[in-house]
Design a protein around this nucleic acid. Sequence first.
DNA 1: TCTTATCTACGAAAATTTTCGTAATAAAAT
DNA 2: ATTTTATTACGAAAATTTTCGTAGATAAGA
Lengths: 128, 128
Amino acid sequence: MEKQIKIKPTESELEILQILWALGKATVRQVNDELSKTKEVGYTTTLKIMQIMFEKQLVSRTDEGRYHVYEAAVGEEPTQHMLLDKFIDSTFRGSATRMVMQALGNQQVSKEELEEIKKLIDSIEKGQ
Amino acid sequence: MEKQIKIKPTESELEILQILWALGKATVRQVNDELSKTKEVGYTTTLKIMQIMFEKQLVSRTDEGRYHVYEAAVGEEPTQHMLLDKFIDSTFRGSATRMVMQALGNQQVSKEELEEIKKLIDSIEKGQ
DNA sequence: TCTTATCTACGAAAATTTTCGTAATAAAAT
DNA sequence: ATTTTATTACGAAAATTTTCGTAGATAAGA
């Protein structure tokens, strides 16, 4: 089992984690290029945040020649899980159901996805 | 229709909004008493945050005699909706389905609630 | 070789959020 | 009337997060 000492990432840190989860491994340059697609951000800003993330153990890195190659050190699912718990607590007073119902009502969810969710519910109910 | 220029509340502000949504109207003292149930917080700290919220138009207030009575100026549902959208974007890369599935899998959701969600899905499917 | 470009480390500035101390004022209690 | 208590306004300190400038080192190019 992975260690679960989960530090809540800041918003900027989460953006970078998303990129690392998608890319697997990446240099600061690559991450900064990705970030630049959606917002203005200086290279050293990205570098600094990634250095802080390294100190917090949110990412690991290896020396490849002269530069560092980074990788997420926390899993995507466990992190999402932790953030989801906190979010449900703070925004929906702990009621996952209320949140799910609002998500289904408000978001664009396709017929296929709704079917998928129903199947999941069925399998949960069987499992209980 | 209400105005939808939604400022994202900070975490502290959201805590106070939750209390105001629950109580309807409340003085700073009352809000602070509620907050004190779960964490250590000074009266002037709560006061200050509520004053900032007043400036941001997150709350309204009326003079009752010598003190102020506060009320949420933003609705609970629209605020949750906005926060949910942002959360799905930042944490689940925009996929409501993925979030819902993780919420259902990870959280304690009762059989009754699962049934309720299934009914909701059915009614959405009929509506489409 | 010399210049230019790239990457890292470091520190500090800027921006945001949270906390709290102090003073003024008005009500309540003695 | 005097003291005590409770409330607000204000400002600034503290903490956190984000941004960026500069210097040093190494590689690449002329």
